[in-house]
Amino acid sequence: MLLSLPQWLGDAHLVPRVAFLALTVGLIAPLVLRRTFPRTVFAVVALICCVQCIAGIAPIPANMSVLMGLYTVAAGFPFRWGLAAALTAELGAVMAAFRYASGLDDQRSTLLMLSVLVAGVWILGLHIRTRRAYLSSLEERAARLEQERDAEVKMAMAAERARIARELHDVVAHNVSVIVVQADGASFAIDTDVARARKALETISHTGRHALAEMRRLLGVLRESDDAGAYAPQPGVAELDDLVEQVRSSGLPVTYEVAGSPPEMSEGRQLTVFRIVQEALTNTLKHGGPRVAATVRLRYAGDAVEVRVHDDGRGAAAADDGRGHGLVGMRERAAVYGGSVRAAPRPGGGFEVVARIPTGEAA
């Protein structure tokens, strides 16, 4: 519109004022809707230019609206639509060159100039379209990566919660079972054997403090502001002696045997072995019955350690409320390192847990 003002205000008019005004309005007004209906606007502008050329009306500045429509179609639609618009504009350039230029040389130079202009606008539109697609793909990829990151964080949180749940189950089930057994023994011995009852109460006190310490350590993991370096190390194979002594002090006779030379094992594998033995002895305390005895055997053979815990208690006759997760937890722990757990009643009485844990990192 601004480019049309000098010609409109000038004295020399190649086009009558009425026709000039009508063409200018007809070519510029549709551009208001070029982002909403780009193909329709381009078609209308190209049609007006075609009628102008056929009528022999001289070109005016508003004819550049064809290039604006071409750019919009090329930048906003697939390649075939941009190519169709470019060919339409090139057809208009051919018509304008042969209509308004006199002489073959002028026609050739005019056609060359208009063709270069059309091709430049078309290529610019294709470039903008490609750039927009690239930026859109980057935004989509960033959004997808953010979603994947959130999903990984949620999976990690769920895995950590599951690990803490297993740890809490092992700690609480074992220590509470020891406390219950000691409390029952103290209640029976308090009238007849005060020293034994006092020893049972001391065991209850020690076991309770140990359970509280482990629970504080595990629950502390859920606190984001705490320092993870302050937590106590996880128990391993070396702590099995203390575990066996603790169970023995609760009144359960336990035989502990080790065969072979212990290889280098990661802390996670050692914790798995410790928790399996702890859970198996806890089940013996809970379900073995009176005068039950247990045996714990560790056998290091090649690239694996075999854990075997069996007792001579009730076995298949033991009551099961169906709410325990100890056996499932043992299998999950072993599966993390490519191991396996078999737990079943023994023929003739008793219960046996056999676990095989690979010791090599390759497993």
Rank of each mutant, 00 (worst) to 15 (best):
186 A>P: 00
313 G>W: 00
261 S>V: 07
154 K>V: 13
36 T>W: 01
18 V>N: 04
175 N>S: 15
302 G>R: 04
234 Q>P: 02
323 R>A: 13
32 V>Q: 14
117 L>F: 08
331 R>I: 04
152 E>C: 00
170 D>T: 13
66 V>H: 02
37 F>D: 02
188 F>P: 00
254 V>N: 07
101 A>D: 13
360 G>R: 09
102 S>T: 10
119 A>Y: 04
123 I>K: 05
119 A>F: 08
232 A>S: 13
83 L>T: 00
307 V>E: 05
25 V>I: 11
134 Y>T: 10
332 E>M: 07
167 E>A: 12
99 R>M: 09
210 H>F: 07
185 G>H: 12
54 I>D: 08
101 A>V: 09
50 C>F: 15
127 H>P: 01
112 L>V: 09
156 A>P: 01
73 V>C: 04
246 Q>L: 14
43 A>D: 01
264 E>Y: 06
265 M>W: 08
176 V>S: 05
316 A>N: 13
229 G>L: 10
361 E>N: 12
17 R>L: 12
25 V>N: 05
93 A>Y: 10
346 R>V: 12
46 A>E: 03
84 A>M: 15
42 F>K: 01
296 V>Q: 09
277 V>H: 11
122 W>I: 01
75 A>G: 04
339 G>T: 03
317 A>F: 06
225 S>P: 02
121 V>K: 01
243 L>M: 08
33 L>K: 07
322 G>F: 11
299 R>K: 05
108 R>N: 08
142 A>S: 15
38 P>T: 03
105 D>P: 08
1 M>S: 11
179 I>R: 05
161 R>K: 07
327 L>A: 14
261 S>A: 15
281 L>S: 10
127 H>N: 03
285 L>W: 02
273 V>M: 04
109 S>L: 15
281 L>I: 08
346 R>D: 06
320 D>H: 11
185 G>K: 11
142 A>I: 10
257 E>T: 14
190 I>H: 09
355 A>P: 10
159 A>V: 03
112 L>W: 09
142 A>H: 13
359 T>E: 05
356 R>D: 04
104 L>I: 11
345 P>L: 09
37 F>W: 15
76 G>A: 03
357 I>H: 06
171 V>Y: 01
286 K>V: 03
101 A>R: 13
342 R>G: 06
294 A>F: 00
26 G>K: 10
223 R>C: 07
294 A>N: 02
316 A>D: 15
